[in-house]
Amino acid sequence: MSTALYPLASLAQIEKTPSREDGIPGDLEEDLRAYGCKLIHEAGILLKQYMFSILYTMICMLRLAENRKQVAVATAQILFQRFWYVTSMKQFGIGDIGMGALYLASKLEECPIRMRDLINVYDLLQQRSTHTRSVLLSGNSSPSTSRRRLEFHYTPMSYFGNTFYDLKEALVVAEMQVLKRLGFNVNVVLPYGTLVNYLRLLGLTNREDVCNRAWGYLNDALQTPVYALYAVPTIVSAAILLTSRHLSIPLPSSPDNCWWELFDADWEDVWSVCGHIMRLYRERNIEDRTRIMGMVSKKGVRQWLEDHHTFDKRG
């Protein structure tokens, strides 16, 4: 697949991203990328940009892209992942860029979102994140804790206050920066149609559990950088491999008859994509979770870098 059609990160960008050059460890950057994509996904659901029925979505995908809203969410997540191969998280917050990417993607997929609605949703998500972080840090997550104290209550912002105008300005700037730093190369090739074709070729479309699980892996992979690193056939092959392993479905994999070679996918690349996806499911302790929630803005990232730098000096 031509990289002109589907732009991928260069070897230099992969070896050392701008964020890592600024002192952000690779595992932390990976977690921040995943959390930023999770916020995009949640915002899409709240904005009714996401379809929940996988089988219905597959049918729509085979028609004239009736599910443009879900496509917009997936497109935004891929643009978000590409952005961090050309820009550091020290310069822009993952919350702002996620909001800008979703706003831009809704235009690209011809299902525009009202700016005010998007700002309201991200304000709600940020308030909820702050509440969850405070609860985790206070250690009040035990069953004996008053349920009322743990409940989240959203406080709507004033449309004439500073918060709204600050978020509006951040949204406009983020959309502009995504376009500028990606060189207006915002073409995205999604894997869902390819998945349907591959499953049909392998004779697995009659298995609803296979379709659901493979589709889910492709959705989860949006929280990883793989769509900015590998071609679509490789990512789809990885989703099928994980599905076949977890559901104990035998597929030809002898040295002379490997099913992934039918799709021009390299085994090492397929296995690498599987690793990226499976790392999403690892257990995270409270410290890691609260650290990520506190680094949604560039201010939080810079504060972490400053604290970490000071600690290294003392050490």
Rank of each mutant, 00 (worst) to 15 (best):
Q303R: 13
N206I: 08
F311G: 02
T145R: 14
M176P: 02
Y165F: 15
I240V: 15
Y35M: 06
D209S: 14
T87A: 12
M99Y: 05
D220A: 02
A12H: 13
L204N: 08
P112A: 03
E169C: 05
S144F: 15
L251K: 11
M99C: 09
V188Y: 07
L46Q: 05
V226P: 01
P156D: 10
G315W: 08
S244W: 11
R128V: 05
R116C: 09
G183W: 01
H153A: 14
V270E: 03
M278K: 11
Q70L: 10
Y217M: 05
G93C: 06
R82W: 07
L202M: 15
S129E: 10
Y85D: 05
N162T: 13
L195C: 06
V86L: 06
V232P: 00
S237W: 03
W84V: 05
G294F: 06
Y281P: 09
Y192I: 03
P250M: 07
V273L: 02
R33I: 05
L118W: 02
I286W: 05
P18I: 04
R213M: 15
V226N: 00
P156C: 11
W215E: 04
A4P: 01
I54P: 00
L262N: 13
I277P: 04
W259K: 11
N120K: 15
T234L: 04
I277C: 06
L167I: 01
D220S: 04
A231I: 08
L125N: 04
L222T: 04
P252N: 14
P25L: 03
F184V: 01
M58A: 00
R82F: 07
R207P: 03
G26E: 12
C211G: 01
P225T: 01
Q81L: 02
C258M: 15
V172N: 06
E175S: 00
S10H: 06
T155I: 14
K298C: 10
E42A: 08
G294E: 09
F263S: 08
S141N: 14
T234K: 02
N162Q: 15
I78S: 08
Q126A: 10
S88G: 09
T234W: 00
P7R: 01
A43E: 07
G26A: 15
E21W: 09
R148V: 12
S2T: 00
S237P: 00
K168T: 02
S146I: 03
M157A: 09
P112E: 03
M293E: 03
P156V: 12
Y85K: 05
L229H: 03
S248R: 15
V71L: 13
V301N: 08
P255T: 08
T243A: 10
T194P: 00
C211E: 02
G216R: 09
P225I: 03
E21T: 09
Q77V: 04
L167P: 00
V73L: 07
L46N: 01
S272I: 05
L179S: 09
E283S: 13
A239E: 03
L79H: 02
E66G: 07
M1E: 00
L199D: 11
Y192C: 04
V273Q: 01
L79S: 09
G93K: 04
L64V: 12
T87Q: 14
N212Q: 14
R213Y: 12
L8T: 01
S254D: 11
M157Q: 11
Q127N: 08
L251N: 11
R289S: 09
L190E: 06
I45A: 10
